[in-house]
Design a protein around this nucleic acid. Structure first.
Length: 840
RNA sequence: GCGAGCGUGGCGGAAUGGUAGACGCACUGGACUUAAAAUCCAGAGUCCGAUAAGGACGUGGGGGUUCAAGUCCCCCCGCUCGUACCA
C-alpha cells in the first residue's frame, strides 16, 4: 500500500475529534502547559506564514503532551479590522458576512492541517459575546482614571471625509481618493500606558525566556531618559517656555530655541503672524509617520520672539518653529546646541546660526561624546557627568529648572473612526457631559443596517444608532461613534481562552491554573506593539481588580517570514511561481513558453505574486509534508525560503519512512530489547539514545530544523541496518517505535498511522516522550584534532579523558604533524577531549 | 532618520572560542527499466595536485583580541522587521 496522505489524514483528524484528543480540562494532578500561537486576522485564506506559525505551535503542544503536561492549545480569530471595511466598500458585502465566511474557510483549512487545537475554545473578537467584556473593561479603566479623552492630530481625507490609517496615506495622499491628506485635530480616547511605563520597563529584566532582541526593542520603545527641564524667560513677556534636555551640560552652547508646530506657543504666534501660520500649515501637510518626519528635510521658521539665556547675561536666543520637533516628546521644545548635536548642527548650518563648541575635542563638529567643558563659565574644566550635576544644582538655586524623567512611549490612542470595531461605551450629553454607559446596558452592539456608500464613519452616519437618552438625565444624547483599535481585542484574548464562561471575562480558577501562557509564538513584527500592549493590559486589568496576573507570556518565540523566489516576464510583470517551469536550468512560462527572469527571494506577498497557496500543497502532498518541510529547513526565528524542491525532499522522506515501517516484520510491537545485543546493535542503540537526547535538546531550544536533521540521520541508520536474525529485528522495531514517537509532533497523521500498523492499539499521542539511556551514550574513544599553529594537521583517536601528557605523546607520533614541527614548539596547548595545538 | 536583527558551498542551513559545511535540496556518475519517472548506490566547498597523499584559500568587507575566531571587540557594506490609525 502506497502512502496516501489525503486518506490517512482525514481518517485521523476524524478519530482525534471523536475521542476529543485535544480537549483541555483543569487537572491539578498534572503540570499545565499553555501553548499559544498569535491568532490570525481572517483575511480569507491561510497563507504560508500561518502554516509556519501553527506548525511550530502544534509541535510544541504535542511534544509537551508527550512529556506529561496537561496542555492547553486554543485558536481563535482576530476578526475586527480595516480589511473587512475595505472589502465592504469594494465588494458590497457586509463586514460581518465577509468576516464570518472567511473564518469558516480558514477554519476548514486549519482543520486540514491536523493541528491539535481544543476547538471548543474557539473565539472570535467581533462576536458581541467577546467584545462585551471589553466594554466593561473600558468602563473600569475610565472610572479608575486610566482611560481619558484628549485632542490628537489625525490624517484627514477631505474627499472621503474619513480619517485615514497611516497605511492608507501614500505620498501624502489618500490611497482611494488621491486627495491631499490634511491634519485634523480630533478628540479621541487614550489609555494611560505611561502610568505603567516604569513597571513595564523594569519587569523586562525578569522575562528570562524572551528573546533579547525583543526585550531591547521594548526597552528602547519605552525610552526612559533622565534629563532636565529648563525654563527660559521670553524677552518682552512674562511668559516662560520649558524645554527638556538630556544634556543640560551643553547649555552654554545653546544658540537657538526650536518648538514644535503643534506647540501652544506656535499657535499663539501664528495668530498674529500669518507667515508663521503658513509655515505651520506647510508642516501639517507632511506625513505623520515617525520615519518620514525624521527623514524629511529640516525646515524652520524664525519667529520674532526670543528668550534670555538662563546663565549668559544679555544673550538672547531666537525661537524657531521647526518641523522636526515632536510635540509628543518632552515638552515639544528644545534648546539647540549645534556644536554637540547632529540635528541641531544641520539646522544651524541651514539657517546660518552660531555654532559654539563647549566641549574640548579634536574631532569634527558636531561632537556628541563626553569631554572637558570650555566656554561654559562655571562648568569649565568639568567632564559631562559632573557638568550635568553642577548645572542641575545651579538651575535649582535659580529656580529655573529641575530634574526630569521623560519617556518616549506615549499613551495608547484607542479611538478609531470606523464601523468594524468594538463600540466605545460612552454617551455624550449636553447637560451631563461624558456619561459611561450603565453596565446593565452592555453590550452595545453594532447596527447591522449600515451604508458604506456615504463617506465617513458609518456609525456616525447611521440614522438612529447614535441617538439615545442620557442615562443620567434622560434627555437627548448621543453615543460615542468611535470604536476600539483592534489591538484592544488582541491584548486579552489569551486570558479569555482559559475559560469562555458567558458571565464574566475571566474565571479566577481558570486564570490561576492556566495563566500565564507558557509558550507564545508569533511573528517578529509584533515584537513591540502587540506584546507591549498585552503586557500593559494585564497590568491595567490588575489595577481595576479584574485579574491577578502581571506578565502574560512566560516564554516567547518569534518566527521569521516565509519567503519565495520572485519571477518576472520580459515586460517586468510579476509571474506566479506556479506558472513557471524549469527547463535545463532556465525558467520558462508554463503557458507562453517565454523565458522568465528569476528575481530575488522575498517575503511572500500578493503584490509580487511570489505566493504559494498552502491549500495546493496540502492537496498535492498532504499536511504532514507541508508541516515537515516547514520545520526542516530553517530555524523558526529566521526567515525561511519556501522551495518546491525542498517540499519534494520532505515528501520523499515521508514516503521512505512509510515504506520502511510498512515492510517491517509485524510482530506485535513491544517495547523491549533482546537479551543479547550484538556490537552493531549496540552502536545503533547508542545512536538512537544520542538522537533522543539531541532531539529533545533541540526542541527545547526551538531549533526544530536540527531536530529534523537528527531524526533523519537516525532514520538513515536504522533503515539501512541489515536485519539478520530475530534479535536484530527486535532492536530495529524498538528503535522504530521511538522514532515514531519523536517524529509524531511533526507529522502526527503519518506517525499515528504507522504506529497502529505496528500493532499498537492506542493513539501515539498517549505515548510518553522517550528518555535517553545514559548507559548507551557514554563514548569510550574520541577523535581529537592536532594543530600546528592553529592549523589542523592530523586527527587522532584516543580513549576519552586521557591524560594531557599521553595525548601529547600520541600526537607527536603523527607523521603529518612532525612534518610541520621543524622546530621545538614554543608552547603546547592540550585541551583534553578537545584539541592539541603546537605553537612554533 | 532612529531602534532591533540577520549575512557561512550552487541553494536552505549545521557548528559549548577548539576538525567549518551535520542534515537536506540541486548536481554528477552508476544500478534498475525497451525508455522515462520513481527508487536504490556512490561522489562532491573552491583552487593546486594524478581522480592519490598532501597543500593553499575559504563563513558580506576591513581591522583587532587569542595558542586558536563563523563565534568576542571596533569600523564599514547589504538585506529584513518595527517606527505608534495595517494586523
Amino acid at each position: 500500500m502506497k502512502y496516501n496522505p489525503s486518506l490517512i489524514e482525514k481518517k485521523w483528524q476524524k478519530k482525534w475529534s471523536e475521542i476529543n484528543s485535544f480537549r483541555a480540562n483543569i487537572d491539578y494532578s498534572k503540570p499545565k502547559y499553555y501553548v499559544l500561537e498569535m491568532f490570525p486576522y481572517p483575511s480569507g485564506a491561510i497563507h504560508m506564514g500561518h502554516v509556519r506559525n501553527y506548525t511550530l505551535g502544534d509541535l510544541v503542544a504535542r511534544y509537551k503532551k508527550a512529556q506529561g503536561f496537561n496542555v492547553l492549545h486554543p485558536m481563535g480569530w482576530d476578526s475586527f479590522g480595516l480589511p473587512a471595511e475595505n472589502a465592504a466598500i469594494e465588494n458590497k458585502t457586509h463586514p460581518s458576512k465577509w468576516t464570518n465566511s472567511n473564518i469558516k474557510n480558514m477554519k476548514a483549512q486549519l482543520m486540514q492541517m491536523g493541528l491539535s487545537y481544543d476547538w471548543d475554545r474557539e473565539l472570535s473578537t467581533c462576536d458581541p459575546n467577546y467584545y462585551k467584556f471589553e466594554q466593561k473593561m473600558f468602563l473600569d479603566f475610565y472610572k479608575a482614571g486610566i482611560a481619558y479623552k484628549k485632542e490628537t492630530l489625525v490624517n484627514w481625507d477631505p474627499v472621503e471625509n474619513t480619517v485615514l490609517a497611516n497605511e492608507q496615506v501614500v505620498d501624502g495622499r489618500g490611497w482611494r481618493s488621491g486627495a491631499e491628506v490634511e491634519k485634523k485635530k480630533m478628540k479621541g480616547w487614550f489609555l494611560k500606558i505611561s502610568h505603567f511605563a516604569d513597571d513595564l520597563l523594569n519587569e523586562i529584566d525578569n522575562l528570562s525566556e524572551w528573546p533579547d532582541k525583543v526585550k531591547t526593542m521594548q526597552r528602547n520603545w519605552i525610552g526612559k531618559s533622565f534629563g532636565a527641564l529648563i525654563k527660559f524667560s521670553l524677552v518682552n513677556s512674562s511668559e516662560k517656555i520649558s524645554v527638556f534636555t538630556t544634556r543640560p551640560d551643553t547649555i552654554f552652547g545653546a544658540t537657538f530655541i526650536a518648538i514644535s508646530p503643534q506647540h501652544p506657543l506656535a499657535k499663539e504666534i501664528s495668530d498674529k503672524d500669518s507667515k508663521a501660520a503658513d509655515f505651520i500649515k506647510f508642516c501639517e501637510k507632511n506625513s505623520s509617520k515617525e520615519a518620514d518626519i525624521e527623514k524629511a528635510e529640516k525646515h524652520g521658521y524664525k519667529t520674532k520672539l526670543s528668550v534670555f539665556h538662563p546663565f549668559k547675561n544679555g544673550v538672547k536666543l531666537q525661537i524657531f518653529i521647526a518641523n522636526f520637533i515632536l510635540m509628543d516628546y518632552g515638552t515639544g521644545a528644545i534648546f539647540g546646541c549645534p556644536a554637540h548635536d547632529q540635528r541641531d548642527y544641520d539646522f544651524a548650518v541651514k539657517y546660518s546660526l552660531e555654532i559654539l563648541p563647549v566641549i574640548k575635542t579634536k574631532e569634527d563638529l558636531p561632537f556628541v561624546g563626553d569631554g572637558i567643558h570650555i566656554n561654559s563659565e562655571f562648568l569649565n574644566g568639568l567632564n559631562t557627568n559632573s557638568a550635568i550635576k553642577t548645572c542641575m544644582k545651579k538651575l535649582h538655586e535659580l529656580e529655573i529648572g529641575e530634574e526630569k524623567i521623560t519617556y518616549r512611549i506615549r499613551d495608547w490612542g484607542v479611538s478609531r473612526q470606523r464601523y468594524w470595531g468594538c463600540p466605545i461605551p460612552i454617551i455624550f450629553c449636553i447637560n451631563c457631559g461624558e456619561v459611561p454607559v450603565p453596565e446593565e446596558h452592555l453590550p452595545i452592539t453594532l447596527p447591522e443596517d449600515i451604508n458604506f456608500n456615504i463617506q465617513g464613519n458609518p456609525l456616525d452616519n447611521h440614522p438612529t444608532w447614535k441617538h439615545v437618552k442620557c442615562p443620567k438625565c434622560n434627555k437627548k444624547a448621543i453615543r460615542e461613534t468611535d470604536t476600539f483599535d483592534t489591538f484592544f481585542e488582541s491584548s486579552w484574548y489569551f486570558a479569555r481562552f482559559t475559560d469562555l464562561n458567558p458571565s464574566s471575562a475571566f474565571s479566577k480558577k481558570a486564570i490561576k491554573y492556566w495563566m500565564p501562557v507558557d509558550q507564545y509564538i508569533g511573528g517578529v513584527e509584533h515584537a513591540v506593539m502587540h506584546l507591549l500592549y498585552s503586557r500593559f493590559f494585564m497590568r491595567a486589568l490588575k489595577y481595576v481588580n479584574s485579574i491577578d496576573l502581571e506578565e502574560p507570556f512566560t516564554s516567547l518565540q518569534t518566527q521569521g517570514m516565509v519567503c519565495h523566489q520572485t519571477f518576472k516576464n520580459k515586460n517586468d510583470q510579476w509571474i506566479y511561481p506556479n506558472d513557471v517551469i524549469k527547463k535545463n536550468s532556465e525558467y520558462l512560462h508554463f503557458q507562453t513558453k517565454e523565458p522568465v527572469k528569476a528575481g530575488r527571494i522575498e517575503k511572500m506577498s500578493k503584490s509580487k505574486k511570489n505566493v504559494v497557496d498552502p491549500q495546493q500543497i496540502i492537496e498535492n502532498y498532504g499536511a504532514d509534508t507541508a508541516r515537515f518541510f516547514m520545520l526542516s529547513d530553517s530555524p523558526p526565528n529566521r526567515d525561511m525560503e519556501w522551495s518546491d524542491s525542498g517540499v519534494e525532499g520532505s515528501w520523499r522522506f515521508l514516503n521512505k519512512l512509510w515504506k520502511f515501517v510498512k515492510t517491517l516484520p509485524n510482530n506485535n510491537s513491544r517495547d523491549e530489547l533482546p537479551k543479547n545485543i550484538s556490537i552493531k546493535g549496540k552502536e545503533l542503540l547508542t545512536f538512537m539514545n544520542t538522537t533522543i537526547k539531541d532531539v529533545t535538546k533541540a526542541i527545547d531550544e526551538f531549533h526544530f530544523n536540527i531536530a529534523v536533521a537528527q531524526i533523519r540521520s537516525l532514520f538513515n541508520l536504522v533503515s539501512s541496518y541489515k536485519i539478520e536474525n530475530e534479535n536484530d529485528s527486535k532492536i530495529v522495531l524498538f528503535i522504530t517505535r521511538k522514532l515514531l514517537i519523536i517524529i509524531n509532533p511533526m507529522v502526527p497523521h503519518l506517525a499515528e498511522e504507522l504506529w497502529y500498523s505496528l500493532g499498537n492499539e492506542n493513539s501515539i499521542s498517549y505515548e510518553c516522550w522517550p528518555k535517553a539511556d545514559s548507559r548507551y551514550i557514554k563514548k569510550n574513544n574520541i577523535k581529537i584534532p592536532i594543530q600546528v599553529n592553529g592549523k589542523v594537521r592530523a586527527v587522532i583517536q584516543v580513549p576519552i579523558d586521557l591524560d594531557k601528557s599521553e595525548i601529547e605523546e600520541i600526537a607527536l607520533k603523527e607523521k603529518n604533524v612532525l612534518k610541520f614541527l621543524d622546530k621545538n614548539p614554543k608552547k603546547v596547548i592540550v585541551v583534553p577531549n578537545r584539541v592539541v595545538n603546537f605553537v612554533i
